[in-house]
Amino acid sequence: MNAKALGLPGRILGVARLSDGAKGATTQRKIARKLPVQKIWSTTALVALQLAVLVGFVVLWEVAAEFKIIDPFFWSQPSSIWSTLVIFLTQGDAFTDIAFTFRSTIFGFIIGTTGGAVLGMSFWWSRNYAQIVQPYIICLESIPKLALAPLIVLVFGMGLSSKVATATALTVVVSTLTAYAGVQAVDRDQERLFYSLGASRWQVFKKLVVPSCIPWIVSILRVNIGLALTGSIVGEFVSSQHGLGRTILYAGSTYEISLVWVAVLILSALSMVMYVTVAWLEKVLRKGVVH
């Protein structure tokens, strides 16, 4: 039984132990057969397979377009995407667009996160004020804020500020609710400790409430950067002169599918970079506030 189990490639988890205390040979075999056999492949094998999938996909696409199995006008093909990418980066407005989208995202992210955090933490000061405002925040949370994008663009104009405003609108509500949850989770005994030492409310706020809420806000950073980016893009869809979202829209309307893909790819890359950076930031901040 064991020999058979161990004869399979790779290492088997869980089977060997069970057969030690099992009743008979038949029961052992029955149970062993039904347990999932998790083969652990080496990382190189896995990565090789993933690369193969990716390359295979690209090759398939190219070939299908070349032989007109799919319409290259509608779907474009990897080769033309590549050439468009090169042109876009060297001669086109790539960097203006990237910078525009990036700036509006970052500003919206920072303003929304800090504003929301401050607002949420302010609820600690007065239970009355918190209870009065809470239904409004929940109401605002349930409105799909992206639906407000046209309105925001109308008020703020075509430039950067409307995109920043949209991004802020998305992030601020999430941050407020998270910070408020952190406020509600402040350890009552620690609060009592502070008051028993004769601390003033401001001291309790500065030295207890704020440090307690920071881990909550840090945990929401990754969500916020995604929301901010989405807000910027939709803002650009509505009306903009620059930005990756605007390029996607413009290229789509003139049926330059290759350019659409290029912009989507660059946007994805930007998105990944920001996401990874924020995840790293989160790790760094967590180390300073160990729980």
Binding site: Q38, L46, V53, L244, G245, G252, I257
Partner: peptide, 30 residues
């Protein structure tokens, strides 16, 4: 299949990081 998961995991992470909303124009064309 944890095997399938491990193979597809990076693709899923990447696809998830793309703001899907950016694909609205292309969906419209298709």
């Amino acid at each position: 299949s944890s095997y399938v998961y491990r193979v597809l995991d990076p693709f899923i992470v990447v696809l998830n990081a793309i703001p899907k909303i950016a694909l609205v124009p292309i969906f419209y064309i298709w």
